[in-house]
Write a protein that binds this DNA or RNA. Structure first.
Lengths: 329, 329
DNA sequence: TTGAAAGCGCTACCAT
DNA sequence: ATGGTAGCGCTTTCAA
């Protein structure tokens, strides 16, 4: 069943059927009715590939993240998918992992599938060395970065001022005289760089001497953190606050501390990042910096929409995080 | 840059270029080398749509779930995506929500995009009334159900014996003389039916009288559960075990109980379902039934592979869950 | 408002 | 082993 069949059955030319399918104006109401009748009667669906051949697109956007089994990315992808769908776009999901070569390969793959745009979720996509693969992709289609920032032509960034968030967090801690802060970060994550910047700036401005012994670089694994923090406590190192670059890490620390009979938040305040579902799982519940995933994603898609419409959206959109105070601080 | 350009530059016909692109045998090594040289030199990528037009496929599989921001689905989608990619397939992600009409619409959409197959993740896709939309889709492409079971032609199911898991769980509880079991389930979830079957069967076989007051139907929200369970306790209802159809629900119950100064597991044992990351967030850590998401997903893709290869894979693949015992029981 | 016909870039069949 | 060419099903001019 193709456009020729429909044309024949409706007694018109394929050009007219095409016009009806694409909702063009220049078709008489009578003809339109007739063609639409035949189409729905036959349950006809235009062939996307033939259509894509002519138009160069089949309305698909590539969405990349390191892994969608991560809470943050899952939520982001869910929001992006739903927003894009309202615009009539499908999402091709790519979980790239952390390897640069892989990321690059995936982007090539997406280009070869002729996606209309690419959305990269997470600062994972910012390499310290070179971002040639992104620049290269951006020459073909617009690239949107969610929670990342890169100055590349045809690349649009939506992110949260995480540096500011941590800065203000340090201030709040200092205000309650919590000046021995254990800082836990995940080395795999590039965004932690800006968090760290906010942290050191906060320490400088609020006269906190941060001992190197109070910085932990850990894998993204609650148990590993628990063990590391436990050892730290056992070794006699003291602190009265914990700031972690991820809720999961904060939770690991929290459990280690409770294990050592330290009271949260009386003895040690604990703060996480992302305001994930995990926050409500501990007792006391975990305070966390909400970096506005949903908002970022909505903004990202809105930016895409403007691009499609031929407008000129902002190259960078910066959102303000919100500190969600719960029992742990 | 198209196949004609490459042909011209390589001094061969487009037919030969096509053969090289598709790795056909009947091309001399010399010609192949030459063509491949030109292709990589020019950075040429075949047009997928033209290709799809000829072949009727561009190697894409539709993956549907209710929402990918759910831990279970996120993990499933991640596994499926990675497995499919090794086979050279891309994933079109569809988060359908719970509405039947929507689900049906998404499946139509995927069909119109000419996906090679569809994978439905979660028993969400089993309607009580009719599954015509699935049957209809299955007439066009193979449909794989992950964690669901439906007897429809061209539909293949991979699931876990959750009924058995709950049955054995009841037995284990009974063995420790925990016979007053609070059963918490999420009504939105169809799979809970088989869990419930396992529960009642277990109660029958191990001489447990299960009072209707000890069955809670709740939304998928920890806070709501916490509140409901709290009220239950306050109203004087007693029990010494909790079985929940999801970790999140179990966690809500656990917090409510700890709030009322009940000791876990001494006073009340708590068991969840899915063995998610949430289990390690509570103290004591949550015991849970591992329904083998990853295995199910891998099996699903393996089934797909067999179908592609023209073999005849099993219509139903049943896996055995594993009880993960932790501190809460 | 409608139709005829020329692509779009590829695959696959038939010759050679 | 290689080339010629007829589709594949649609969109989009250009004419009428």
């Amino acid at each position: 069943m193709n456009i020729y069949d429909i044309a024949k059955l409706a007694g018109v030319s394929i050009a007219t059927v095409s016009r009806v399918i694409n909702g063009k104006e220049n078709v008489s109401e009578k003809t339109r009715q007739k063609v639409e009748g035949v189409i729905s009667e036959m349950g006809y669906t235009p062939n996307v590939f033939a259509r894509g051949l002519g138009l160069g697109s089949i309305q698909m956007v590539g969405v990349l993240c390191s892994t969608v089994s991560d809470l943050f990315y899952a939520r982001a992808v869910a929001t992006i998918e739903s927003e894009l769908r309202t615009l009539g776009y499908d999402v091709i999901l790519c979980c790239t992992g952390n390897d640069v070569a892989e990321k690059s390969r995936y982007m090539q793959l997406l280009l070869s599938k002729r996606v209309d745009a690419m959305i990269l979720v997470g600062s994972i996509f910012q390499e310290r060395t070179s971002n040639e693969h992104i620049a290269q992709a951006a020459t073909q289609v617009p690239v949107i970065l969610v929670n990342g920032s890169l100055d590349i032509p045809n690349t649009y960034c939506v992110f949260c001022d995480e540096e500011g968030a941590v800065y203000h967090l340090v201030r709040a801690l200092a205000a309650e005289n919590r000046r021995e802060i254990l800082y836990i970060e995940n080395t795999e994550n590039y965004a932690s760089l800006s968090k760290w910047r906010g942290f050191t700036r906060g320490c400088a401005d609020y006269n906190i001497f941060h001992s190197p012994a109070l910085t932990l670089q850990v894998p993204k694994d609650a148990d590993a953190v628990k063990e590391r923090v436990g050892r730290l406590v056992d070794s006699g190192v003291t602190f009265n606050a914990v700031v972690a670059s991820e809720d999961l890490l904060a939770l690991g620390a929290l459990k280690a501390l409770q294990n050592r009979n330290l009271r949260i938040p009386e003895d040690v305040a604990v703060v996480g990042f992302n305001d994930s579902i995990l926050c409500e799982c501990s007792s006391p519940e975990l305070s966390s910096v909400d970096n506005k995933v949903d908002d970022m994603c909505r903004r990202a898609v809105a930016t895409l929409l403007e691009l499609i419409r031929g407008r000129n959206p902002p190259t960078r959109t910066v959102l303000t995080p919100e500190f969600k105070r719960r029992g742990s601080f």
